[in-house]
Write a protein that binds this DNA or RNA. Structure first.
Lengths: 251, 251
DNA sequence: TTGCTCCTCACGTCACGTGAGGTGGC
DNA sequence: TTGCTCCTCACGTCACGTGAGGTGGC
């Protein structure tokens, strides 16, 4: 049969069949020496169907060729392909999550700004941490604080924030973790209002150092005076979530 | 800052930054006329972070550029992107299903072969169909037959098959649908053994006509004599599932 | 002088889509 | 002569990776 007939049967284009020919994946039974016309036979038809079947699994054409030509372990190749597709799906799921987080934040793209943060009711806990344990320490303190406030006061924290030194050296550093409440309760205190240079970051945790860097650079560049403390405010704890990284200013 | 410093902060390569420069997506604050060295400032740093944030959603660089440069509707763009990612995920899910079906079948790739199909216990039902209603008619008959055998005989069919004329003209055509049983029951009959040219097809429904075509071509090419009937045997009804398309032979 | 960072081309990736320009049989 | 199918280049896609080959400041 001609290339057009084969293409019609397979519901693919003649260009695709010429591409397969060029790759050596599906060579015509015979090529007219004069006109260059390709002639395909029954064996090529069957092979073409097999190729389309394997293409439906997302395998590359070169892999398909190897599987059809040698007696390579097709089961093994399909299992491998399965794992790779799962990775790709996970990547796309992460993109969906990133989109949702951005939409939920009102599409806030990282940009540093000076803001006046109003006073707030908070429950405070203090701890210390090695520099490279910082994020784990904060996470644990937040979980503990969340449980405590719910058990002891029946109140759920709206969000959490952490404060630690702006410049981190060796050795343990003091960390303050706050749970933010809507209303004052027995154990809550008031955190006074302050001026901050703030970066709202929507994205996964790996972007937090970047936000910190943006904030710090902006402080320097605008000639502001930092108070020596960093504030990270976790607006939601989902990953990727919204995190504010801020540097309190001395006004 | 230099291109290397900016790259380090963003955890991307200098090549990527040069690429952005080339696209006009992120142009340095200043380029040394003599050495060609790029110099980036605070504004470029912030813009670069915004670019990376939007890249996490899977948007293309050209779209990102448009969103950052004009006041295009970013919310609309993100919603659109969300839908496109869902489509891509669905495609990959279909690939996973294709892999699973192939693995479940023992990696049977379409190839026509002459087989002796043994006798079987079946429950038979007859109906007619317009040619372009064929697949729907078969599906309905299978559902009905499945319900009937379970209700009236408490037996579940192992699989189903359908028989219809090999050459389909205009007008209604006779269709025979069988439910295959493990054991004989009150209403079951025996379908005698027969010789078929069979193609086992693993894939979605759209490939069934292809399998039919493979089988028919093989019959012709091998000089066999067809009985005038096509048999489709649905080994599992999931989609994509395993379907045998066979043409009974006159021996 | 040796590293290090920086520079500019320019090819390669993957599976084709899409013209451009031309030919042979009904 | 007009359609139709067929042919061969060859560029374009997308976001860079990866050399090749070379330069300026410590």
């Amino acid at each position: 049969m001609t290339i057009g007939e084969l293409a019609q049967r397979l519901r693919i284009t003649t260009r695709t069949l010429r591409h397969y020919d060029q790759l050596g994946l599906l060579v015509p039974e015979h090529v007219d020496a004069l006109t260059g016309y390709r002639e395909y036979g029954q064996a090529q038809f069957v092979r073409a169907v097999q190729i389309e079947q394997l293409k439906a699994t997302g395998l590359s054409l070169s892999t398909i060729g190897q599987l059809l030509d040698s007696d390579d372990d097709t089961v093994r190749a399909l299992r491998l392909q399965r794992r790779q597709i799962e990775v790709v799906i996970a990547e796309h799921a992460a993109q969906l999550a990133a989109i949702d987080a951005l939409l939920a934040s009102g599409v806030a793209l990282a940009s540093p700004e000076v803001v006046e943060v109003p006073a707030a009711y908070v429950v405070v806990t203090h701890t210390t941490s090695e520099p490279d344990e910082l994020s784990r320490t904060i996470r644990r303190a937040i979980q503990q604080l969340g449980r405590d406030t719910r058990q002891r006061q029946g109140v759920r924290c709206r969000s959490f924030s952490a404060r630690f030194p702006l410049h981190i050296d060796d050795g343990p550093l003091p960390v303050e973790v706050c749970g933010h409440l809507d209303e004052p309760t027995g154990l809550s205190t008031v955190r006074p209002s302050e001026t901050q240079l703030k970066v709202l970051l929507v994205g996964d945790i790996s972007m937090v150092p970047l936000a910190y860097d943006v904030a710090l650079t902006a402080v320097r560049q605008r000639g502001l005076v930092a108070s020596g403390t960093v504030v990270e405010h976790y607006l939601d704890l989902a990953s990727p979530g919204r995190t504010e990284v801020a540097i309190p200013l001395c006004v």
